[in-house]
Simulated scan of single mutants.
Amino acid sequence: MPRRPTRTVPTVLLPGPLGASDQDWQPWLADQLRGAGREVRLASWPAPDAADLTGCLAALRNCLAGLPDDGFDVLAHSAACLLWLHHAAGEAQAASSPRPSRVALVAPPAPERPLPAWDFLRPVPLQVDALRRAADGTVLVGSDDDPDCPGGVAQIFGAPLKMAATMIAGAGSLTAASGYGPWPAVLDWCGRDNLAFLA
C-alpha cells in the first residue's frame, strides 16, 4: 500500500503527443494521486492529423483553467516538455493562465529530433527568463541513454536554460518500455513540497 502523499495541491499531467500507454507512469501516477484524494488533470491533445501549435497551446491552457496561482504542479513528458517551453515563451498566453508552483520536465526530446505529428514545435524556445516567470520552480529529469536526447538533458536543456537536471542511469525515454510504469520517485516528488527530484 503506497504511502499517502503529504502535498495536497492539484497535479496537471501533460503526456507526449501520442499519449501515455496504460503501462506508462502517467496513468499509474494519476491513479495513485486520485486514490490519495488529490485532484489530477490530464491534458488531451488534438488528433495528430489536426494538431498544430495554436491548438495544442489552447488545450494546455484549457487544462490549466481555474487552477489557483502558485497552487498546483505540472509534470510534462516527452514532446509535451517542448510545448511547455512554448507556453512559457508566449508571455501573453502564460500571463493569462494560472502559474504553477512547480514544473517537472521529464525526458524532453532534443530540439532537432524528428517529432511525428508535432514537428510544429520546432524551433524550440530556450528562454531562461520566460521559463522562470512561468512557474515558481522548474526541474529537468532525464536519463543518460535516452535515444531521443543524445547528449542528455543536462547538456541539451540544462545548460542553455541555466538549470540543474536529475540524471537517471539507464532509464531510456522514461516509459514503461524502459521500466517506468510504476515509478515511486515521481510519486515521492508529488508528495513533497520542495522542487528537487530524487531519483
Rank of each mutant, 00 (worst) to 15 (best):
L131S: 00
R113F: 14
L121P: 00
R133D: 12
A117N: 13
R113T: 13
E112R: 07
V124Q: 03
L105Q: 09
V106R: 06
L115V: 13
A130Y: 04
P116W: 14
L105I: 06
A117R: 13
R122L: 05
P116I: 10
P125T: 03
A107R: 04
A110P: 14
A134M: 04
E112S: 13
L115N: 03
A107E: 11
A117C: 14
L131M: 06
L115R: 00
P111N: 06
D119I: 08
D119L: 11
V106S: 06
R132S: 02
V128H: 11
V128F: 01
D119A: 15
D119R: 13
R133G: 10
D129V: 09
D119V: 10
Q127S: 09
R133A: 15
V124Y: 05
L105Y: 14
L115P: 04
D119T: 10
P109R: 08
P116M: 14
V128G: 01
D119K: 08
F120K: 04
P123C: 06
R113W: 11
P114F: 08
R122T: 12
E112I: 04
P125I: 00
E112K: 03
W118K: 02
L115F: 06
V124R: 03
P114Y: 10
E112D: 15
P116T: 08
P116A: 11
A107I: 08
R113C: 06
E112N: 10
W118V: 15
L131W: 00
L126S: 06
R122V: 05
E112T: 10
A110E: 07
L105R: 08
P111V: 09
P125D: 09
P123L: 04
R113V: 12
A134I: 04
R122H: 14
V124L: 05
V106E: 10
D129G: 08
A134T: 04
A130N: 08
L131Q: 02
P114D: 13
E112C: 03
L115A: 12
V128S: 04
P125R: 10
P125A: 08
V128W: 01
W118P: 00
D119N: 15
F120I: 11
R132T: 03
L105N: 10
D119Y: 07
F120C: 09
W118C: 10
R122S: 14
P109F: 12
P111S: 11
A107V: 09
R133P: 02
P108L: 02
P125C: 03
E112A: 14
P109Q: 11
Q127F: 00
A130R: 11
V124P: 07
V106K: 07
A134Y: 03
P108F: 07
P125W: 01
A130G: 05
A117G: 04
R122W: 00
V128Y: 00
A130C: 12
A130P: 07
A130H: 11
P123W: 01
P116V: 12
V124E: 05
P109N: 01
F120R: 01
